[in-house]
C-alpha cells in the first residue's frame, strides 16, 4: 500500500488539471468524478473529454479509447507473467481494473510475484487520489481565476512530455515515431481541408500511422521488450 502513496499524490495533481479540462468541456464535477473512478486513465479520459466537448459520436469515442488504451492490453499481458499462481480468475478481474501505467511500472519492479493483497493495496490510494483530484479540479476550476486554470491546463501536457522525451532521447526510433505523430497532428490542425476532421479521429489516425511506420522500419528487438 505504501508503494501507492507517490502515485496517489502525482495522480491528485494531474487529475486536478483533468478536472479543469472537464469543466471547460461542459461537464460537472460529479460527472468528472464518476468518469475518473470508472475509467482510471489519464490519456484516455483526456481524449474522451475532447470527443465529448466536440460533440463527437459514440463510435468515435469507442475508437479513441481502444487506440489510446491499447497499451494497457500489452501491460496486462506482461502482468500475467508476474502474477502469483494462486491468483484466481475473479481476482484477476479485480486487478485488471486498476492496471494503469504507473501501477504497472511499480508492480513490475516489485521483487516478488504479485499477490492479490499487494495489488489491491497498491491500487487503492491512487484510485482515491485520481478521483478526488478530478472532482476538486472541476469544483475549483469554476472559482479559480482564468489565468490559474489556464496554466494548470498545461500540466497534463507537461506530464506527457515528461513520459515521452526521456525515452525519445535514448531511442532514435521513438524520436522519429513521436515526430511523425506530431507532424501528422499538426496537419490535421492547420491544413484547411483536414480541419473538419474531429479531434478523436485525428488522434487515432496519427497514432496508428506513426506506430505502424515505427513497427515497419524499426521493429523492436527481443532485448528491448520489457
Amino acid at each position: 500500500m505504501k508503494d501507492g502513496i507517490p502515485i496517489a499524490l502525482g495522480y491528485f495533481a494531474v487529475s486536478f488539471s483533468l478536472g479543469i479540462a472537464m469543466l471547460s468541456a461542459g461537464m460537472t464535477a460529479v460527472q468528472g468524478a464518476v468518469m475518473s473512478v470508472s475509467n482510471l486513465t489519464s490519456a484516455g479520459e483526456f481524449a474522451g473529454v475532447r470527443v465529448i466537448a466536440a460533440g463527437g459520436g459514440l463510435l468515435e469515442l469507442i475508437l479513441t479509447q481502444v487506440i489510446i488504451n491499447l497499451r494497457y492490453s500489452l501491460m496486462s499481458l506482461s502482468l500475467t507473467q508476474k502474477l502469483d499462481e494462486k491468483v484466481t480468475l475473479w481476482q484477476k478481474l479485480l486487478i485488471a481494473f486498476g492496471n494503469t501505467d504507473e501501477i504497472f511500472a511499480v508492480a513490475m519492479n516489485h521483487q516478488r510475484s504479485l499477490t492479490l493483497p499487494y495489488m489491491l493495496g497498491l491500487q487503492s490510494l491512487p484510485i482515491i487520489g485520481w478521483t478526488a483530484g478530478t472532482f476538486l479540479g472541476a469544483v475549483a476550476g469554476g472559482i479559480m481565476p482564468r489565468s490559474v486554470s489556464m496554466a494548470m491546463n498545461v500540466m497534463l501536457y507537461g506530464m506527457f512530455i515528461a513520459i515521452v522525451f526521456p525515452v525519445a532521447r535514448k531511442s532514435r526510433a521513438v524520436l522519429i515515431v513521436a515526430s511523425i505523430a506530431v507532424f501528422c497532428s499538426c496537419l490535421f490542425r492547420y491544413v484547411p481541408f483536414l480541419q473538419g476532421i474531429s479531434d478523436g479521429i485525428s488522434i487515432i489516425i496519427c497514432t496508428i500511422a506513426a506506430a505502424t511506420l515505427g513497427a515497419i522500419f524499426f521493429p523492436v528487438d527481443e532485448k528491448e521488450d520489457a
Binding site: 487506440i67 491499447l70 485525428s202 506506430a211 513497427a215
Partner: peptide
C-alpha cells in the same frame, strides 16, 4: 514482431499527437 513493435510505439505516438499542437492553444 510487428504487433509487439506496434504496441510498443503506440503510447509515444498517441501522447505526442495529443500534446502537439494542442498545447500551444491551451493558454491565452
Amino acid at each position: 514482431r510487428f504487433v509487439k513493435s506496434f504496441l510498443f510505439y503506440v503510447p509515444y505516438a498517441c501522447l505526442m499527437a495529443m500534446t502537439f499542437p494542442a498545447v500551444f492553444h491551451a493558454s491565452d
